[in-house]
Design a protein around this nucleic acid. Sequence first.
DNA 1: CTATTAATGCAACTTACTTGCAATTGCAAC
DNA 2: GTTGCAATTGCAAGTAAGTTGCATTAATAG
Lengths: 140, 140
Amino acid sequence: MGLTNSILAGFQSKGYRLTASRKAIVRIFLNSKAPLSAVELNSRLKKIDVIVNKTTVYREIDFLKSQKVIRELPFGDGKKRYEKWPDNHHHHLVCISCDSIECIELTGCLEKEEKKIMKENNFKTIKHSLEFQGLCAKCQ
Amino acid sequence: MGLTNSILAGFQSKGYRLTASRKAIVRIFLNSKAPLSAVELNSRLKKIDVIVNKTTVYREIDFLKSQKVIRELPFGDGKKRYEKWPDNHHHHLVCISCDSIECIELTGCLEKEEKKIMKENNFKTIKHSLEFQGLCAKCQ
DNA sequence: CTATTAATGCAACTTACTTGCAATTGCAAC
DNA sequence: GTTGCAATTGCAAGTAAGTTGCATTAATAG
């Protein structure tokens, strides 16, 4: 049983229903390498002939977020973007020219730094975001 | 001559005009410790009885951005926020409960990491953002 | 098959931001 | 001080992302 199916089975066991849009959206997020905005998700659904109202798309995103299947990423363009909940914490290279997004991993130095800062500032971190904006190989 | 005035004098020498709203907005950004959204800026203007149309606020933000007096920060809440162009690069602690923002500085480990990543990915960075979201001392 | 209630669609609304255009105004030259 | 140019502004209307209330539909348990 694939990851998509095991997530869907988990939903069902909790009393949530397996609708066509839910199945399609989970599958899209799990197979997408790049983070998706609500609008991008909607157009991917159209491509595979799953016609869903935008309200449903937003509600499904909220649902998947609450179920920790996806997480929200903070980019600076006024659009919220989401990606499948990462097993490994990582960050992004966002090309300001072609909008492409690559995932990268960092070494441990940031975590140390983070702990220190949190202690000094008496701040309890829920999440952090580190995103690089610039030009990808193609666009330089 | 203060920083605000020298910036304003610079505008004038380039043929831009010193209007009441421009003067007030530059002063607000230079004196604000926390980054401001367009809406927040507008309400600060109201407080000091400088009544400006929101269109003007957005246009002035664009202008100050193009003049590198302020820069845009990437937060994930659907609102663009701006702060005075920083002499020293720094990052932010954003409280998800009360929306307060604190500025922090990091040690050099991130820069090293950044150079490595850029080389490996053949990516040319324009800027990076590192923001921590969580709960401030008051809100815990 | 039926009942329950999760999920959906629709329309109207909100918020952040933008655009076109006519009116205003800073300021430099006279 | 008056004049003229173009930078700046306000207004109204528009766009795009996201939200809400409510009536309807449909997935699933019994």
